[in-house]
Every structure is written in C-alpha cells, then in structure tokens.
Design a protein around this nucleic acid. Structure first.
Length: 275
DNA sequence: AAAGACACCTGTCCGC
DNA sequence: TGCGGACAGGTGTCTT
C-alpha cells in the first residue's frame, strides 16, 4: 500500500492527534511480522508520544525512552480509532491511549515491521544507509547524475532503490518517468543532463501532488483519519496497461522490470531522443 | 561493487 | 461454484 506520499499522509494525519498522548496499554495479537515484534508493553506503557516523524517509508514514534519504528510493508495500515473497537483479522497491534483512543496496526501480508530502538533512530541498521529524501534540497539533478553514472541498471529500479533515494515505489516511479518522458528500461548510465533535469522535478512534483491528494487509494488505503486518498484518479500509467495514453492515445505497454510490472508509453517515453 | 533473484504472506481476480 | 495460478503498493538478504 504505502509509498512516501501515503506514509507522509499518515504522519500528517496522526501527528496532531497523537502528540503528547500517553500510552496506557499495548496489545500484540500477532507477534510475528517481518521480524518478531519486541516485547513493547514494558517499553511503551505510561510513555508519552513526543513526536511522529518519517524517514523514507518508516514512521518514527519518538517517546522519552526511545523510538518506535513502524514500516507498513505492502499492505500495512495504521488507524486512530476513537475508542476500543473489536479487533478484526489482521489487526495485529493496538496502542491503547489513556483517553481510550486506540492506534491500531493492521497488515494482512505481514511484510511490515514494528521495532524499537533506544539509540539514535537514524543510526538504526535499517535506516542508517537510506538515501536522500526526494522532497529535500539534497535530491538534485547533480546527485541523480552522480548516482546514475556508469550504472547499467534500468532507470526505474534505480529510482526505486532506497539506498539512492527513498520513498519512490512502483506507482510513483512509473508516474514520474512518464511525466519526465523517460523510458523506464533505459540504462541509468545513459541518462542525459537534460533528462535528469526533467526527472528530478518530475519526481518531486508527483510526490507533492500525491501528498496534496492524501495519497493513492488502491485497495483500502485510508489515512489516520480514515479518509481515502484521491491521487488514484490522476494516475497516467500505473494500472493502465493496454489503455490509451492520455497524451498521445497509443495503447500503454507493460513490461516486467526488476520483478515489478511497469507500465509506460512507447511513444512518449524514450531512451535517447527527447520526446 | 553492482545487479538480479528470492523470500516473506494473504487476498483478490481471472480463466477454465 | 470451485480451483489453480498470476498478481499486488516493499525491501532485506542471498546469489551471481
């Protein structure tokens, strides 16, 4: 479910409601996500949530004694419920707050993770080697060109590589490359300065627009307030294989690239020539 | 060093 | 209606 815009939407949705909330009890119904969930009850009980932030697709709940790291994997959700609601299948973890509200983690596929660190969270093994944040000044044309230089890998898997730039998943990689007019299978090392100068702003624009729309609801993504995201209505290529390109009318093609299905327009997205 | 394959797990959809 | 197979928003780890 979540790429950077969805995670950011959740952070923005939860933060105003959870800042300074105190955890009363923790319920772990399923201890095994991607990794075993640590024994959180003793760590979290009576602690107050200081801040909720994001690094890549990781959510960080900063508490006085350490940081709760949450990743939503492919199918994870985090919902704030007004009061105790009977848990359903796949509702794995509840943080019960002192005022009766519940932060509930749901994840059918269990590819997500809930971890704890009492050291600097950014030094955690899962976070320390993450690449730049795409919506900061660190993500520039020069940085992208430096990362693509001499790489034979296709440009799409490269921009989805969290060691290079975080937060771009299969939807937004496809959408960004379409907006920039770049073929997803183009070897990264062939990316020209002109193309990089289009791709970096395209990625920023796509992610910002998606955040403004509250993310993309495909299956049942909802933010912390239970509202869906509306960016799905603006997808140009993702999920549209075989349908006509909204720009030129050509049927959109689909290839598998890096084991991920990749939709693009042969007419509008080129390897070498400018579109 | 870099690139690719694989693994993890459940739900849904499509064709027969 | 049932069943098998393909596919799904991610990413750490293992193999080439």
């Amino acid at each position: 479910m979540p790429e950077l815009p969805e995670v950011e939407t959740i952070v923005q949705g939860l933060k105003p409601h959870l800042q300074d909330a105190t955890i009363k009890q923790v319920t772990i119904r399923t201890p095994q996500l991607r990794w075993p969930i640590p024994a959180l009850t003793g760590l979290l009980k009576h602690q107050t949530i200081r801040q909720i932030t994001r690094r890549g697709k990781y959510l960080l709940f900063e508490l006085p004694q350490g940081t709760l790291l949450i990743h939503l994997g492919m199918s994870g959700r985090l919902c704030l419920l007004p009061h105790e609601t009977p848990p359903q299948r796949h509702d794995h973890v509840d943080l019960l707050l002192t005022d009766g509200r519940v932060v509930r983690y749901t994840d059918p596929r269990r590819f997500g993770a809930i971890l704890w660190t009492n050291a600097c969270p950014l030094q955690h093994p899962l976070l320390k080697d993450l690449g730049v944040e795409p919506l900061t000044e660190a993500f520039t044309e020069a940085y992208l060109l430096q990362q693509t230089a001499k790489r034979r890998r296709a440009i799409k898997p490269l921009i989805m590589d969290s060691k290079i730039v975080v937060g771009i998943g299969n939807i937004y990689a496809a959408e960004s490359l379409f907006l920039a007019g770049i073929h997803p299978a183009m070897p990264a090392g062939l990316l020209t300065k002109t193309q990089a100068a289009r791709l970096v702003p395209a990625i920023k624009q796509i992610l910002e627009r998606a955040i403004a729309q509250g993310g993309t609801t495909l299956k049942d993504f909802v933010n912390g307030d239970g509202r869906p995201g509306y960016f799905a209505q603006q997808l140009e290529v993702y999920g549209r294989a075989g349908l006509p390109c909204n720009v030129c009318g050509e049927p959109l093609k689909s290839h598998v690239l890096g084991q991920r299905s990749t939709v693009f327009c042969e007419q509008c997205q080129k390897m070498h020539k400018e579109p």
